[in-house]
Simulated scan of single mutants.
Amino acid sequence: MASEPARRLVRDSAPPAVLVDSRVILDVVTGDPRWCEWSAGKIAEARDDGALVINPVIYSEISVGYDSVELLDGMLGSDYERHPLPWTAGFLAGKAFKRYRANGGQKRSPLPDFYIGAHAAVAGYRLLTRDAARYRTYFPRLEVIAPD
């Protein structure tokens, strides 16, 4: 039987959870001809490494294609842990959005993306997404899993 420090070392060395961006989940759900295979493979790899996580922003973006909470929850099953947004992620998202606008960003509603990046950064998650450029620009220490 492993000692407590040995058990803690094994637990501490496990990869951090992966926050899965809504687009990646939707690629699989909709059978996107270009991205379904890549997204399904990356979700499977992340699940093999540890926990898959979504938050209320991701949940709301996915919900658009469902007529009820029950149908959405049925699709998500028990594969995805639902984590709340930390207040500090809200603060960091606002600061990232402010930098984005100061750098000439024109999109008026990218704040959900900044919430997702900030949540992953604050919680120490990895982020599985296809939109790597924005996350790498505004959350440079965040480990992003994205297409090459």
Rank of each mutant, 00 (worst) to 15 (best):
G65C: 09
A44M: 11
A2S: 14
G77Q: 10
G117D: 06
E81M: 09
P110T: 10
G41P: 05
L76I: 05
R34M: 11
V20G: 01
P140C: 11
R101K: 15
G77D: 08
E4Y: 12
P33F: 12
G41N: 13
G50N: 07
W38F: 07
R134S: 07
V53G: 00
T30N: 14
D131Y: 03
A6F: 11
M1Y: 10
G50A: 09
A46S: 14
D131W: 04
F139H: 03
I145E: 07
H119A: 07
I145S: 03
R134Q: 12
I58A: 02
R34P: 00
H119C: 10
A118W: 02
D73Q: 13
V69S: 14
R141V: 04
T88G: 05
D12I: 04
V10M: 12
L26H: 05
P147G: 08
C36G: 09
H119I: 00
V10P: 00
Y125P: 00
E70A: 14
Y59T: 02
Y59K: 05
V24Q: 01
P5G: 10
R47T: 07
V18K: 01
D32R: 13
L142D: 00
R47K: 15
L85W: 05
I145P: 01
L111W: 09
E81Q: 14
W35R: 14
E61M: 09
G50Q: 08
I54Q: 00
D27K: 06
T137K: 13
A44G: 08
G65E: 10
F114K: 03
L76G: 02
D27F: 07
V28W: 02
